[in-house]
Nucleic acid binder design. Structure first.
Length: 135
DNA sequence: CCAGTGATTGTTGTG
DNA sequence: CACAACAATCACTGG
């Protein structure tokens, strides 16, 4: 079962888990989230497939188990392609961190009023490589 | 009505 | 060095 990797044997589960407690209402819209691991990258495609093969499945548990099972079934080389992608994701993540850091230095706190976002189609300028197809 | 839960593994962050 | 928390996903549930 799961090989030895898991929990590193921490018997004493005291209140060590204090959870970072996000009590602070610090809203960091620019704060980049952690890059997806190879497993998640693989899941990105797997989720779609799983849904198609199991449209009746509800919840994430079923998918998670199926995903984890399939993931371990893959060969390291097969996973390598996802790992490679994950590496790139991480790289971009670092870039985002830099941008985020830049904001911290430049824009300390920019409150944005909820202007009517009617015809104003303002796009985030960060994407740049986002292709949008018109329908 | 909103936010949390449940399960997966990997990666990053923090102590 | 070792652990802890979080990353996405989605349907459901409680207060």
């Amino acid at each position: 079962m799961k090989g030895g990797r898991s929990k590193a044997g921490s018997k004493n589960d005291d209140k060590l888990s204090v959870k970072q407690k996000k009590g602070k209402k610090v809203k960091d819209p620019n704060k980049p989230k952690r890059p997806p691991s190879a497993f998640f990258v693989f899941m990105e495609g797997f989720r779609k497939q799983f849904k198609e093969k199991n449209p009746a499945v509800k919840g994430v548990a079923a998918m998670g188990k199926a995903g984890g099972d399939a993931w371990r079934s893959m060969s390291d080389e097969d996973k390598a392609q996802y790992v490679t992608v994950a590496e790139q994701r991480k790289k971009e993540y670092e870039k985002k961190l830099k941008a985020y850091d830049n904001k911290q230095s430049g824009e300390i706190e920019e409150e944005e009023s909820d202007k009517s976002k009617s015809e104003v189609n303002d796009e985030d300028e960060e994407g740049s490589d986002e292709e949008e197809d018109d329908d």
